[in-house]
Design a protein around this nucleic acid. Structure first.
Length: 238
DNA sequence: GTTCTAGAAC
DNA sequence: GTTCTAGAAC
């Protein structure tokens, strides 16, 4: 099976036949799969299943979708966005269970995707997993570079002027998006420039650890306050 | 995606 | 000398 079209194959397969190592969940219109090369601790892809009136080729990428019927595209993206909201809640529950706090989860498309078939990334913003090894991996998710297209931003194009919408829909991936992957490395949280990937990853890990500490302390403070309030309540009724 | 490697950076 | 990147080949 070709790597470039594996997502297309999944999108055309009966979900019951997909292995649990691939499939996380599905609905009548979409599949949520684990990203095989997770760049965040949590990293999923939501794919639209191939169903009329959509054709395989219209669902090839965000670009092909946006260049097709506009109303239909908006409806499909809105549905994917709803699936993503549900998924984000599930991710946050698991974050609390496994890590004791929650952190950011991003939802968006790559401007120049490397695989066929529309796929919406839903990933946690830690970005220093084992699979994060190359500048282009990191830059493809950097929220300030423009390669990663947040779904809310994409949906906002539908409410903009037609000329703007069509300019975004017709953007040349090779000319517009691909050069962004070569930008210098910088921390997306604090903007500090980083000389290479190992340095960046160590820095991101520090940022993450500091965030974990702050967030857990916040949760603990809240818990203590609630405990105190509950105690006062009991005292008052005694 | 991975592996290999030349050359740059340190 | 070692670490790291980036491009080519697969």
């Amino acid at each position: 099976m070709s790597n470039l079209t594996i997502l297309r194959t999944y999108a055309q397969t009966n979900p019951a036949k997909l292995p649990p190592s691939v499939l996380f969940s599905h609905t009548t219109t979409s599949l949520t799969i684990y990203d095989a090369f997770a760049k965040g601790i949590f990293h999923f892809l939501i794919l639209p299943r191939v169903q009329a009136p959509f054709t395989v080729s219209e669902l090839s990428s965000l670009r092909t979708l946006l260049r097709g019927d506009k109303a239909r595209a908006k409806q499909l993206l809105t549905a994917l966005n709803e699936d993503a909201k549900t998924l984000r809640k599930e991710i946050e529950e698991e974050m609390l269970d496994r890590f004791g706090f929650t952190w950011g989860v991003w939802t968006g498309f790559h401007g120049a995707p490397s695989m066929e078939h529309l796929h919406l990334h839903v990933l946690s913003d830690d970005l220093c997993t084992e699979r994060m090894n190359k500048k282009k991996h990191y830059n493809s998710f950097h929220p300030k570079l423009g390669f990663f297209l947040d779904i809310d931003e994409v949906l906002s194009w539908f409410d903009a002027e037609d000329s703007y919408f069509s300019s975004m829909a017709n953007m040349d991936p090779r000319k517009h998006y691909e050069p962004m992957l070569k930008e210098d490395l910088s921390c997306w949280r604090c903007n500090t420039s980083m000389k290479n990937i190992p340095t960046l990853k160590a820095h991101l890990q520090e940022e993450f650890d500091a965030l974990a500490k702050r967030e857990k302390a916040k949760i603990e403070r809240r818990r203590k306050l609630e405990e105190k309030a509950a105690r006062r309540e009991t005292d008052a009724t005694e």
